[in-house]
Design a binder for these strands. Structure first.
Lengths: 345, 345
DNA sequence: CGTAGTTACCGAAACGCTTCGGTACGGAGA
DNA sequence: TCTCCGTACCGAAGCGTTTCGGTAACTACG
């Protein structure tokens, strides 16, 4: 196995200087078409492929972006958002020769260190920030580190960096309206963890939609984005004097957990309580009853956020901008029904 | 924001040559302790952090490993294996200053190209090979590319490269024995996709355990590792003349889908049919009835496979070796019961 | 025919590190 | 006192690119 060809080999074989070979192979002006083609041919013959390392050194680019995910158990294991999101990222960056470095952080404090290392070692040219918290310290951190970053954030927040929006709030509005249309007037909400901006967005959407309809927002349960959180929410709900006729959950997993919890207590869904989710995960189609939800488009979010990041890397001083990623359709399921036609069996 | 310090700055500030600074900071002999400490102090003062790029160029190392996952929808979205596995990898490699590059491949043919690119651009020093197929072309590919690789594979197969084993087959044996102990004699198997070596390992374990018990292996359903595959398997099972009294599924997701399918058809689980899974995913605890399964330890698998890969990168000519990663405990659930005491309601 | 402008190419420096051969200096041994 | 060797350090080369200033040759124009 002979050592791989360098650009010097190509230049020598083509009878040109090293710099000419570089210019020719990178497709920039200053070389005659004939020479360029000859050099290209030689490169192909020698199976030349440029050394990313050497190029990195001189262009000061890592040709990779970073993505730090916190709490792998919750986010990756359960949240199907993740897979499609990653796939979307890759679609966006691979054409540019970029690659994604994935880090998992066991805790919030270690997350900061990971970003620091990523920045100091210059391993990545930029990062994607997801799972945004209230007063998320990462925002200041990336600024301080001079690390280009794009955030995935609700449309409602405004940050000092480029954002890819997916309006989960808009989805909740649609779901609440659907329930209102069916006749529900007592609509509870199982919220996500209170320190996530995504939770707040969804809660606000639920609340304001009900207020707009002239209703007082029903019980609000602090839940979470996991199945177990949904199940716990069921218990809390059952401890109330009045069981609402419908529950809008922050996401599908919580909704599935909630349904399981309600059913375990003998509550009929949707007969006694209607339940909605958000995300459109595959699992929702396998529950009984099938979950009514709105399809999120994590692949699109990933694709758009990543391509925004590439733009930002090219123009670091660009003013922050935002892109709205469209939601998917509502997915109707048997988990909702008009209120009051079910027994309490 | 002034440019970051280079090793030349450190050397100058410490009044030594560049090479001495390098030697001192890398902790190798040839420098007096006093000088070494002085250089270290200067480095700290200047907030020097070595350029990975420059180092990469000269040491010919990328300081990163690659992991290509195929079919993100199936593997990442649904399979909770993934999150823990990744986390385990990171634990193993981060101490060595390594990082993981994650690629997703939409199709098998593109997977090969991804490995090729990874190798040609020398972006990674080695790769982890998971989700092994029968006659997997990646094995020859990495050899051809000279890319160090460690495979995650069943104990039963022998490959020409280092392997991290997790004996899913052993888990299946335990589950089948448990069912036998409960009195079951008619035990079916919902297998995974036939081209995965993991499927074959599990099927073989089911089959041989039954034969050892003097039984003829019951119906074998070609299923899959997903919930929908499990649900389809339920239909196939229901079309048989005799419904087995127990079904051993290739993994938890299939088991959950199977249970859902059986229940939808009015079959009581475990009254009429007992069901077991394998993986120990969180979801299994939220199904009704709770799933009996064996806990896999994907984080350990990831950790061990990754550290094996680092060893291999250090000693590329080392003979292939194998490490067995212990399984977790059996998790009992209400999805199994003695046969024949349930109604067909 | 002389000169300015363009085109096509070359040479060398630079990116920031590691590594290896070499040198000065001190002490040990004869 | 001379030689030898180990220690502590230095200088320079090299990793494989990109980039920039420079130089021939060629065209166009008066």
């Amino acid at each position: 196995m002979r050592p791989r060809a360098t650009i010097a080999d190509v230049a020598a074989a083509a009878g040109v200087s090293l710099s000419t070979a570089s210019v020719a192979l990178n497709g920039r002006p200053g070389v005659s078409e004939a020479t360029r083609e000859r050099i290209r041919q030689v490169a192909r013959d020698l199976e030349y492929s440029p050394s990313l390392r050497a190029r990195s050194l001189v262009t000061k680019r890592a040709y990779s972006i970073g993505f730090v995910v916190q709490s792998p158990a919750t986010v990756m294991s359960a949240d199907p958002f993740f897979g499609s999101f990653i796939a979307g990222i890759q679609v966006a960056i691979s054409a540019a020769g970029y690659v994604m470095v994935l880090l998992v952080s066991p805790s919030l404090s270690q997350t900061e260190d990971l970003y620091r290392e990523l920045a100091q070692s210059r391993r990545v040219d930029g990062v994607l920030i997801d799972q945004l918290r209230v007063n998320d310290r990462r925002l200041e951190l990336v600024r301080e580190l001079g690390l280009p970053a794009v955030a995935i954030a609700p449309s409602s927040v405004t940050l000092p960096l480029p954002m890819a929006h997916q309006s989960a709030g808009g989805a909740i509005v649609r779901l609440v309206r659907r329930l209102l249309h069916l006749g529900h007037r007592d609509i509870a909400h199982v919220a996500g963890p209170p320190d996530y901006v995504h939770s707040i967005e969804r809660r606000d959407a639920w609340e304001s939609t009900l207020r707009q309809a002239g209703l007082t927002p029903g019980p609000l349960i602090q839940g979470g984005f996991t199945m177990s959180a949904g199940q716990l929410a069921a218990e809390e709900l059952l401890a109330l004097q009045h069981l609402p006729t419908a529950v809008v959950c922050a996401n599908d997993l919580a909704a599935i957990g909630l349904i399981a919890g309600l059913q375990a207590a003998g509550i009929d869904v949707p007969g006694r309580v209607s339940v909605t989710g958000f995300d459109g995960i595959e699992l929702g189609a396998y529950t009984t009853p099938k979950l009514t939800t709105v399809q999120a488009t994590p692949d699109q979010v990933g694709r758009i956020a990543a391509s925004m990041l590439l733009e930002l890397i090219d123009q670091p001083d660009r003013q922050p901008w935002a892109v709205e990623v469209p939601l998917g359709p509502m997915i109707p399921g048997a988990s909702v029904a008009p209120p009051g036609n079910g027994s309490d069996l």
